[in-house]
Design a protein around this nucleic acid. Sequence first.
RNA 1: GCGCUCGUAGCUCAACCGGAUAGAGCAACGGCCUUCUAAGCCGUAGGUUACAGGUUCGAUUCCUGUCGAGCGCGCCA
Length: 572
Amino acid sequence: MTLHELLSCRVAAALAAAGAPDAAPVVQPSSKPEFGDYQANGVMGAAKALKTNPRELATKVVAALQLDGIASKIEIAGPGFINITLADDFLADTVTRQQADVQLGTGRHAGDKVVIDYSSPNLAKEMHVGHLRSTIIGDALARVLAFRGDQVVRQNHVGDWGTQFGMLTAYLVETEQAGSEALALDDLEGFYRAAKQRFDEDAAFADRARDYVVKLQGGDVRVRALWQRFLEVSLAHCEAVYERLGVQLQRDDVMGESAYNDDLPRVVVDLRAAGLLTEDAGAQVVFLDEFKNKEGEAQAYIIQKQDGGYLYSTSDLAALRYRAGKLGARRLLYVVDARQGLHFQQLFTLGRKAGFIGADVATEHVAFGTMMGEDGKPFKTRSGGTVKLVELLDEAERRAFDLVSEKNPDLAEEKRRSIARAVGIGAVKYADLSKHRTSDYIFDWNTMLSFEGNTAPYLQYAYTRLASIFRAAGSFDHHAKLTLTEPAEHALALQLAQFPDLLAQVAAETCPHFLCAYLYQLATRFSRFYEACPVLKSEGETRASRLALCAAAANTLKTGLGLLGIAVLEEM
RNA sequence: GCGCUCGUAGCUCAACCGGAUAGAGCAACGGCCUUCUAAGCCGUAGGUUACAGGUUCGAUUCCUGUCGAGCGCGCCA
């Protein structure tokens, strides 16, 4: 049982004993240190329901509250808050037990199968900053869910289908004939621009491109092979970016739009058989009662164009059915831009109506905000283009290298390079992950590549201080008995003990920024401990205890950062 | 026109589904390195939570309205 579960359970029992069996305990970490470690707020609501005095009810609840060996102090405050301070010995035991578990006390429930759709770049172009959020939020969530024991299936729903690929393959033939194919494909972005230019300026080329789309969809062997070659280059580019970013997506996780191509006609047939499809202006559409406006007119959700072509609604329906059916997932997560909110509401509603997914399958659009420029308008470079992801990462590493060279000039250059990689990439990811995903995102080089305060380098720095202590300490017992005497030790141990509760919250609400806030708080509490409590200079049991506490902090920090996909360093 | 998301310190962001005196970081000002890495620690200052009502012991949070912002809404994804 986690701390929160334990306390909730005990307070609920005390409420029942005091005559409020149905009252919610409402236990949460205290808002201020003066209020102890946890506060139970359920008494006020319960007193209201029972029409009794909350202070009197609180007195009864506290009298019935069984926290022997758990709490060192229980107080009633204000209108009826119950403030609980945990016993040092109990906290020490909790941390010790947690550290003995490879999952740090989090892995109890046996694996729900969860499909998580993230990154999903368009393979026609190079990855740009707009792909960052989905990629790293999805990766962090996948890691957290897997760590807690869920069976996670990653799905990289890449854009590898549609009209633009006719254009690209047609252009690939041209460059091949000109003997410059390899060179051209080396620069995906330039290749796309050049193909687009040919398409816009040369009617014959445009016709050829359209012909290639038909051949591609019809399964023409030669065009398919060209298309495959292009995808190979583009995927290799994505994988290089994933590798640099420390994102776990691999080739096996790729399940692109094209994978559902053969299933699309069946989707239409099945929707029609279910009586959901209507022909409107030549297109096959679904009108869902759930999406009526005030005038009672239902919104159209187009499944098939009047020319017979399919849309992303069609392939998303096919993917939905595949994930719930063939993959057998109980929870479907889509880490996709918030602007597609309506699409997903319609998709999920229709998917259920059509029987593609059962009532026991949860569907969640893990929406995130739009990338904005410093002026608050949609993000663009000075010249009006998009910032490539590799350019952002290059800049991050360059700045980190300059800083580490300034702070630690004696380190070998190769060492400084590798530190700069971890610090630069970590800063970029943390800057993004630490914000609530639903809010719009202001892209700013200086904010994103800041290395002070609430940033990844602060957390990494805390870890290097720990590593430095361990180096100087030599061998020691990582699981020595903890004796918590100083307030800074108590605060740090409490933070460590809350790790399982925190991860449960991240998993339930799919919000990585909770984990960032937790780790920042953990690092802050460690830093205070570091200032207040000498480790190596203390002696005997105190020294052994503090070293073990440091080991627990280092382990939790490393694990937590690992779940965000951020590396730790021995020195920086 | 309809719908979704939002409006919190000068700036960037939090606030654990209604809890106590709304918290951090950056920027500003002042302290702390002969002592485990100062990318750090401590302190000061900074707020009518857009505005107006309502619900109740209690509202940044829930409801209504106003103002303002961003984004969606039939053949792109």
